[in-house]
Design a protein around this nucleic acid. Sequence first.
DNA 1: GTTAAGGCATTTTTT
DNA 2: ATGCCTTAAC
Length: 736
Amino acid sequence: MQTTILNNLNEAQLQAVSSEPENQLVLAGAGSGKTRVLVHRIAFLIQAHGYSPHQILAVTFTNKAAKEMRERLSGLMGDYDGPFSARSMWVGTFHGIAHRLLKAHWQEAGLPQNFQILDTDDQLRLIKRVYQALNLDDSRWPVKQAQWFIGGQKDEGLRPQHIVEGRDPFLATMKSVYQAYEEACERGGLVDFAELLLRSHELWLKNPDLLRHYQQRFRYLLVDEFQDTNAVQYAWLRVLAGNVSHITAVGDDDQSIYGWRGAKIENIQQFEHDFSPVAVTRLEQNYRSSANILSAANAVIQHNAERLGKSLWTDDGDGELIDLYTAFNEQDEARYIVERIKAFTEEHKLNNRDCAILYRSNAQSRALEEAFIREGLPYRIYGGQRFYERLEIKNALAYLRLLVNRFDDAAFERVINTPTRGIGAKTIETVRLFAREQGCSMFEALQGAISHQVFSARATNALKSFVELIDTLKDSIDGLALEEVAERVIRQSGLLDYHQKEKGEKGQARVENLQELVNACRVFDPQDEGLSPLQEFVDNAALDAGDAQADEFDDAVQMMTLHSAKGLEFPLVFLAGMEEGLFPHKMSLDEHGRLEEERRLCYVGITRAMKKLVICFAESRRMHGNENFNSLSRFVREIPQDLLQEVRIKSTITRPASYGSSRHGAARYSGSPLGSQSNVEDYPGLCLGQQVRHKVFGEGTIVQFEGQGGSARVQVNFDSEGSKWLVLQYAKLQAL
DNA sequence: GTTAAGGCATTTTTT
DNA sequence: ATGCCTTAAC
């Protein structure tokens, strides 16, 4: 058994896996077998050092990572049941584990047993209501900012009483919002994401016996993506470890890309200090990318000053050069990518799913999508709206939540008039006021208001029917299977009808999603005996993005942001939109730390590629409705030129200087983006954007050059015939 | 209670 | 350009 665990590990991996139990920091470069080390380390602890899976806690950031770790563990150790079953090991996300703790110790945590998790959207709505209660001007203090503030404070482990506002009106306002928001959560039994962590941290601090129990139980902690931990997460780990348990922290400072949401790279150094002595291992051998790709990645990241220092290397050959394509505009960029993917998959006998297009911001996907649709090449966009965040799903879930806990004001407000049942803003406001006055939930306030005849007959009727609806549903679901509950709720609440009546594809998609929700209920596998499946399902929905759905098996080209590409790998990778202002994003330019984070993001992007990396850059790009002329990203200029190969023909690019009037924009510079010498001979008298005449196709515009000498070709967009590639030698184009 | 019209911002994302 | 949200009019 032990042999399999230690087999096929390189020296550094072996050291990390097989060392004595101790505090260790594994600096794992991209593609260096990080998860492998983590999983083998766990297996080794169990089989060589006699740890029970019961004593091990492994924490990740995403459900996906947790799932992968669980799968690989059972692959390595076997999926047998019994006292040493891998199933008794806690493997989960920080939030998932914190939630589990709070569920188990709700009383000590000061929560109702059926507390609900508030997602970002619920949170925003709740804060909006807090604003109304406090009579705050949301133009002066944007609600989003308050949400950001509250989350930020919680991530730092701070409660309202910790905030010293002094004479700062902003702090004073935010503090009062935070305070009122906390009260609202308290009333409704609501817990937001940051609260899960903070609350479970406080749970331990306030209950030493409980803490001792968990400290004695979890003798070994393992943390993935350690560079992404924020202050509370770090404190949480530190408290849990105490001075009895050991920690293995695995991370890569060069891949820290979430500083903007509270992640602290410094936790790595802090860890070495707080958990001293710490054995540090560097995993620098890369098993993913060709040497050229790695050299490029190393060259870029070396421009960052604040690094722990690490340099990837590989046994693999140089591989192909990195292509650099200078596109005319974003359409041309998209067109080029489609073309390259078609050629590449054919040439290398690869699938579409082996190709990925990575970009800095979501808005870039549009032009790409259009080109893919036009060319009939299947694609899949990652990210975007998650299943459980869709309007119709949230509505249905709100009904389900009300059935679990009718004090849940967030759910109440969402569906009190959805579908519309004649309960207007005025009526709801009155209920809200009532609830506030009496310090009770809105549902209770509503019942009180009805019996006191506060509303007009019409409103009273509508309100009564709502209460009745919830009551009837509640009564009728006893003993029903989860999917029957969902089915019934969707139907009887009128949600299904409501969305069916919606016009266009939108309504149809929503109905389908609702059916998908019923489906999700059917396949849902409750884990906790103590909870009702409904309650568990509802909790789960909040913690689970619900992605990784069906399309996974389709053979589609993958499109995603650089952020969501972290942890993935693809044979062919395109980095699209490598332009100053877009990447690095202009929002990050003024701050040194932000710029370094952008550079790490670039490093992440480059290191996703296994065989071939293609970098694209558009000379002109439409953003927010107007044309932008950006220069090549500094990150590309940081790549040694001998690793790059420019795809575009080297011709002097001069375009008619017709700013604004021509949709082709104007020339900004001459020559190649890297500044090497140009070669105009291949395209005498022609330039991009130029009008030309062809004796068969008529008039058109030159949009692209390719090749040289006898094989020099141009792409022309003909007014009547569309776009065509023509070999210059034969086409006899006439410049206009 | 529904729809039309204007205002406004528009990096990145998990839980 | 686009979408999202608030506000004003039907």
